[in-house]
Simulated assay, not measured.
Amino acid sequence: MKLLLSVEEAQARILALAAPLAPENIPFTDAVGRFLSKDVTALRDQPAAALSAMDGYAIRFEDLPGPWSITGEVAAGAMPSRAIGAREAMRIFTGAMLPPGADTVVVQEDVAEAGAALVLTGEGPAARGKHVRARAGDFAAGTCLLAAGARLTPGAIAAAIMAGAPAAAVGRRPRVAILTTGDELVPPGHPLGVGQIPDSNGAMLAAMLKEEAAEVGLPLHAPDDRTLIANVLRDLARHHDVIVTIGGASVGDHDHIQGALAGAGGSVDFWKVAMRPGKPLVAGTIGTAALLGLPGNPASAFVTATLFLLPLVRHLAGARAPLPLVRQAPLAAPLAAGGERRDYLRARLDADGLTPFASQDSGQTVPLAAANALVIREPRAPARAPLESADYIAIA
């Protein structure tokens, strides 16, 4: 086994730990953020007939500039009472079906009624079909509107419903357990003893997962006791699809995740990735659950969760493209040469470009709070000047 995997190798092996979960049908009102388990194919034309896009009068374009005789009216949701013929017009409202024979709508601001006649007072429509929504102008029956694995946004939900889908066919939400470890950690808001620090990582990961298609329980905590951690892991594996631990991922005297995983009957797929921060990452399985052991420093936990945990959750939920999107932007400040591992640098992206922070200490939370981007610096990359392009991942 390679001691240090590349980020891409680690991502591929983590996604291979478990297959996407079984699909389910749910109401569209509950479906935002979920991933489609099958294509959405239109069952109908939209619109199903030519409709007026404005309030006005349905006419034949060839009869311009009028005048016309008014033969009735049609409202949205109603069938036209008759067809229109030469030099005839029918009052029509937005969303109403065009009567047979009509091909254009003249807006009400461009005409006036003179007794039973309609006369043009403005410029009128410039072309045949003006102010008309053509049949199937949005989509036609049989069109694949949304591909399996697509994330359901509010707009996508509207399209799926308009296509005739009765419910959302989506992947089940993975059940995720968060377990922080370490004798030095104290729950948020509790008094601190000597050498103790508040346990910020559990709440941070829960917040990161809040916008994902996942069921996340309250973060749990275990002290540095290998047997106790093994018992907790064994119990969590019975009820969860993903277990993410924070801290204890290395192999020091007080790093117990690998040993506890073995003690619980699980196995390690790999540990250690050629990246900074976040080198000591454990990936494995216990029962049917995938396990990720993240390092304990806040920036390390955040970066590894961004690159590995969130993609795993999206993969299990059925995402077609679960990995974070890598973008490019110009640098607003110099970027020093790279080292032996790939760096993910906390940075700020604004109108001037990307500015990596001076301090990249993985234990600091203030730079993490200020960052909205992770600048990617490849191993042994040359120094770069302002205005040169850099790869980055957007973060909240």
Rank of each mutant, 00 (worst) to 15 (best):
A373K: 01
P280G: 02
G182D: 01
A126W: 09
D39K: 11
I286W: 07
Q328F: 00
T245S: 12
R175M: 05
A150F: 06
L291T: 05
R234V: 02
A168K: 04
D110H: 13
L192S: 05
A317R: 01
A12M: 12
N231L: 09
V111A: 03
K130H: 13
L51H: 00
P324Q: 07
A394I: 04
I243V: 15
A76H: 10
L3N: 09
L310I: 15
G149L: 07
D343M: 09
A319F: 02
V273M: 03
S200P: 00
L374T: 06
P20T: 08
V176Y: 00
G189V: 05
I246F: 04
G266S: 02
G318H: 08
V40T: 09
L118I: 02
G115L: 06
R173D: 09
T288L: 06
L309T: 01
D235T: 14
A96V: 10
F308G: 04
G137N: 03
A206C: 07
L281T: 04
V74H: 04
A42G: 12
R91N: 06
V313G: 09
T245N: 06
P382K: 01
A167L: 03
A319M: 08
L374D: 05
P379A: 08
L291C: 09
D55N: 15
P67V: 03
R380N: 14
V7K: 03
T143D: 12
S69K: 15
F302H: 08
L5K: 07
P188L: 05
L374N: 00
I14H: 12
I197G: 00
P23E: 14
M162K: 11
R87S: 12
G115I: 10
E9C: 02
L294H: 05
T306F: 00
T143K: 11
R128H: 03
F308I: 08
A134G: 13
E340H: 13
T29Q: 08
M97Q: 12
A249I: 10
Y344T: 11
M1D: 10
A358I: 05
Y344N: 07
H315F: 05
R34C: 14
A147V: 13
I59F: 03
A89K: 02
G72R: 12
R91D: 09
P125M: 01
A383N: 10
A383F: 12
R91H: 13
A370L: 13
A237D: 04
P277F: 00
A351T: 11
R87T: 11
W68K: 04
D361N: 15
G248A: 12
P367Q: 02
S267L: 04
T365G: 02
P280E: 03
N25Q: 15
A214I: 04
M90Y: 08
V176C: 05
H239M: 05
R327F: 06
P382N: 01
A112T: 10
L294I: 03
A112R: 11
D350W: 01
T304G: 04
K210M: 06
A381L: 06
I157Y: 08
L36H: 05
A336I: 10
